[in-house]
Nucleic acid binder design. Structure first.
Lengths: 222, 222
DNA sequence: TAGATTGTTAATCGATTAACAATC
DNA sequence: TAGATTGTTAATCGATTAACAATC
């Protein structure tokens, strides 16, 4: 696989392609053209072909793409088959909810451990994953290979825990704390789930929509 | 407030500005320049001023921006003070977790009702929000003004429920189902929380990082 | 073969950055 | 006043779209 510099926009579309291809495979579709894929995803065929061409040649002229083969290529590009490991830091509401309900394995990640400070949790298992005391974090991360940390601690502990995690050589963080972690000079990979950002974007679009409707109504009544 | 056509990228940055300004206000900072704000967010001062200029003039030459005033402007642009109402459709793990742990009110939304099919839930309240039978959805949405639906039903019910919701005139959906809902021709506003997309992006960046390190190591050993 | 569709190059479009006059 | 910083126009950069030869 080529690994040229790929723009962020392209990277963000890859998981969407993957999901759509899974859907198509489940529906028994075995081949698809960039035209049809574009129609179903709201993208132009050009863009889709351009995106794929960053990584190689996955189609056949006059035919299109084989759904399962293309799916496998994209999974490979995303690193889904690399067996990444992760730990959960903070087993509160969101941490526990993720451990119980999100299928890490489906997306190529194995949860190895979780950390918290609440005495009643230490030594227990959540969905087969052992919960250790947060004091053990450094020891564990040093002795075990961990690719990513799922950060679910309270907001005010986010920065301190990020430092602890990255100091141990883990430089990918899936951030659920709603804090802006992206330190300008650090090389740490941070991927954010900001529920509030998402809801506020929705709020903006609702407002825009209502304003447009009001403006239209005003024009008619004039 | 002006409402010119604003690009998606700008809209996505607004919630980040809001969060950062809240942080600054909490830290007792009362004024900030685009330069300093840019440094803290990893954006250029130009971009920040350009972004704001889509909506009006919020700063003062030679001085910068008043943190609380700018915060209020952005909150207003996002529609946070418009008192939007929402219902939760599907009180499973994720629906319940959101109702219990996500502070809708903080971001300007009021949860009015929730819907599910499980008999033991009907008639109960979750965090003060009444849970009705899913059969009541149409009646409720017709009789009450609802701005947005938080869609938390199982994947395979996502499309059917989206149709039910939009038929009743609710055309904003906060989508937690991990299904691609964006129907090409529909005017429905869909905002997605795709955990897997986010994790897969992280997976991509980890892969890129490892590949780079490996390539560097190979060059050195040659 | 004829029709379809790819991969890629070139053209267009839009977003970001730089520059600077205006002014607090 | 002098220094700082805005809002905005122009320049640059990057991403998307269009076009088309190659070919299945």
């Amino acid at each position: 696989m080529k690994r040229v510099k790929v723009s962020n926009n392209v990277i963000r579309r890859l998981p969407r392609y993957l999901r759509k291809l899974d859907e198509l495979a489940a529906a028994g579709v075995s081949r698809i053209s960039s035209g049809e894929l574009g129609r179903q995803l709201g993208l132009t065929p050009s863009q889709i072909r351009q995106d794929f061409s960053c990584f190689g040649e996955f189609g056949q002229q006059g035919y299109g793409y084989k759904v399962t083969a293309l799916r496998a290529e994209i999974a490979n590009i995303l690193g889904m088959d690399r067996g990444y490991t992760a730990v959960v830091v903070g087993v509160g509401n969101i941490g526990r909810a993720l451990m119980c309900n999100f299928d890490f394995a489906q997306w190529g990640f194995t949860l190895k451990a979780a950390f918290d400070v609440k005495p009643e949790l230490i030594g227990t298992e959540v969905e087969g994953v052992p919960v250790y005391h947060a004091d053990e974090l450094e020891r564990y991360l040093t002795e075990n290979h961990v690719d990513a940390a799922v950060l679910c601690v309270p907001k005010q502990l986010a920065v301190a825990n990020t430092e602890r995690i990255t100091r141990c050589g883990v430089n990918a963080i899936w951030n659920f704390t709603n804090m802006e972690l992206t330190a300008p000079e650090s090389s740490t990979i941070v991927e954010n789930i900001h529920f509030s950002d998402s809801l506020l974007s929705l709020s903006y679009f609702i407002s825009e929509d209502l304003d447009e409707k009001a403006a239209r109504a005003a024009r008619i009544n004039k």
